[in-house]
Design a protein around this nucleic acid. Structure first.
Lengths: 341, 341
DNA sequence: GGGTGCTACTAAACCGGTTTAGGTGGAGCG
DNA sequence: CGCTCCACCTAAACCGGTTTAGTAGCACCC
């Protein structure tokens, strides 16, 4: 009825359970033919070691955690997680590790969650996403002694490495693309300044403008949601001197911005150019199609997983080369055609 | 350095580890003051029972699995999973259960994955999503004896219950809404006919038309992706007698369809009405905003989790009342204004 | 005063693996 | 022949909980 245990296999093969364990983990000290026989019996019986038992005896959870601390509403529209998770998983499963997912509605409950994962010994390490400026989590995790990899542009913490594509270059490319088209009033709709990737994108935008000798255009802080993107866009378009281009910190806000412009009869890109960030599937299928920044999120997830497993096993870091984010130019950007007087 | 174990607590409290266990799980047979003392000591030492050890001794994994069997590309754009997971998690965490996530690139590898989760004893039950017509998984899970809850419109299987909002009523409401606006050529862009929720939405559309005494309009099978939605739309618009309304099986295809129409200068809703399904965050922020069907995916996830935990504990099912999907009427639908001659 | 019954607790088995210390048999060697 | 050494394998401890069987202590009662 129930699945065979190592004892059943040992008995059937006429050896001790130690021998079975040795055979399975191919450790030296077993005659080749014995090993083969044991493995044969195990296969015939359909035996797979129980990961519960293994976890207990090796004092490892054989799982890592990912905490998503967001209201489900904003989670819903985020194309990042599914891809990231796919990348993470592809690497974890190769090592017999599993991914434990936790969703906490608020950023507040997050610390609690990490502590519980650690206290209960559910995971051997965690990913930290959506890092805030002055985020308390790295310190907490250091205190807990729980290996962690910070996912995202590297706010290098003394304790845990961060793995991630720097999002600066993508924004820089977007701004430079707009500059090359002759734009001089380039606005930005940013993510929350409290969040590292909200801030870093904003800074990349500002730095590029400064580098071009232009004044820092108007910037409206939003929260990555469509609603906030639309509101920010209305605010920018209502300015006495509206921008001729808007760089949005993500696709969702950019698409909402496109809709606002369209609703006002503003020609894109004739009178307003728009760029996003993420390269959502939809971006290519809008009219006009969205110019945006694409990055290899799956590869990124894989790299983060590799690093976390290394950390857990106390192995040195292998160098990973992540492809830089790439600007994908589509129809939503172009030279100014109908200059506002 | 390392976390205290039940032995440490027992020693500190001057009792046996059995007593500590009793106190923790408040089982009878302990003097109230002893129980209080033990719990006090445990709290002071910051002890939390190791879920690894618990899992082994109670012969439970204390975790359930969710396998997402899709190429990451289509996963990426799916707003369903994050919400669903949020709902699931909210219920699991209340019971000390965790959610194990697996992503397998292809539908093929899925069976393998379930088998492994079961063999290794990683989970006590699983969710089954994206059910295919004649899906082999329910039978496999029955064979493995792994409790499962099928997520989605109920193809009632003899073994496992399905939890989910029937998507029929939402589509019916969409079609009826279009009929009320005077449409008579109502097309459908469906999901894969191999998939249960692709098929059920298509059937709801067809049945509603038949019920209204109308011929079944044209239907193009697509695969829920933006690309396929766009292609299907082009195909429909190229017909000698193009439809005046298109019911899409999800928002992503509908938005791509909107873009195709817009690219051809077709007025929406003046000449073509469009409905989606899902109520993506973006739907409300397009021009025109998308009429679509919204359902309580979070509540759905919660209900699925409740049912799965009941199944695992062999408790009878409690009746759950899920709100029906609701048609959200927005700007993409309206009466025919510019009839094609 | 010894049996009965109860409460409050302990000791030990158990879950299913891994790991370490130890033991056995045969070859090699003086 | 007796000793050492090695290759191969076994027995048992261990991971950290839960659970069962058992026992000490006490009151009650005839």
């Amino acid at each position: 009825m129930s699945r065979p245990t190592i004892n059943d296999v040992a008995r059937a093969a006429g050896v001790s359970k130690g021998a079975v364990s040795f055979a399975l983990n191919d450790r030296s000290g077993l005659a080749p033919e014995t090993r083969a026989r044991i493995l044969g019996v195990a296969r015939d019986m359909g035996w797979t070691p129980s990961s519960r038992a293994r976890a207990l005896s090796v004092s490892r959870a054989l799982a890592v955690g990912l905490v998503m601390a967001r209201p489900p509403e904003t989670l819903r529209a985020d194309p990042f997680f599914p891809s990231f998770i796919a990348g993470v998983e592809s690497e974890l499963s190769r090592h017999g590790y599993a991914l434990l997912l936790q969703v906490v509605p608020e950023h507040e409950g997050e610390q609690q969650t990490y502590r519980r994962l650690s206290d209960e010994g559910r995971v051997d390490g965690v990913f930290v996403t959506d890092l805030y400026v002055d985020d308390a989590r790295p310190a907490l995790l250091a205190e807990l002694g729980l290996p962690a990899v910070i996912v995202g542009p590297g706010l290098t913490t003394p304790v845990w490495p961060s793995v991630g594509v720097d999002d600066g270059p993508g924004i820089v490319a977007a701004v430079e693309h707009l500059l090359a088209q002759g734009h001089t009033r380039i606005a930005h709709v940013s993510g929350p300044a409290r969040m590292v990737h909200g801030r870093s994108r904003r800074e990349a935008w500002a730095a590029t403008l400064r580098g071009a000798g232009l004044p820092e255009g108007p910037c409206v802080e939003a929260d990555f949601s469509a609603e906030s993107g639309a509101a920010a866009t209305r605010e920018l378009l209502d300015l006495a001197e509206p921008p001729t281009a808007i760089v949005y910190a993500n696709d969702l806000m950019a698409v909402a911005g496109l809709a606002v412009a369209s609703g006002r009869g503003i020609d894109v890109p004739g009178r307003l150019s728009v760029t996003g960030y993420e390269d959502t599937e939809l971006a290519a299928h809008l009219v006009p199609a969205l110019t945006t920044v694409s990055s290899d999120v799956i590869g990124w997830g894989r790299a983060a997983a590799v690093r976390l497993l290394e950390l857990i096993d106390q192995r040195p870091a292998t160098a990973v080369e992540l492809p830089l984010p790439r600007l994908v130019v589509r129809g939503s950007t172009g030279p100014v055609r109908h200059p506002v007087p």
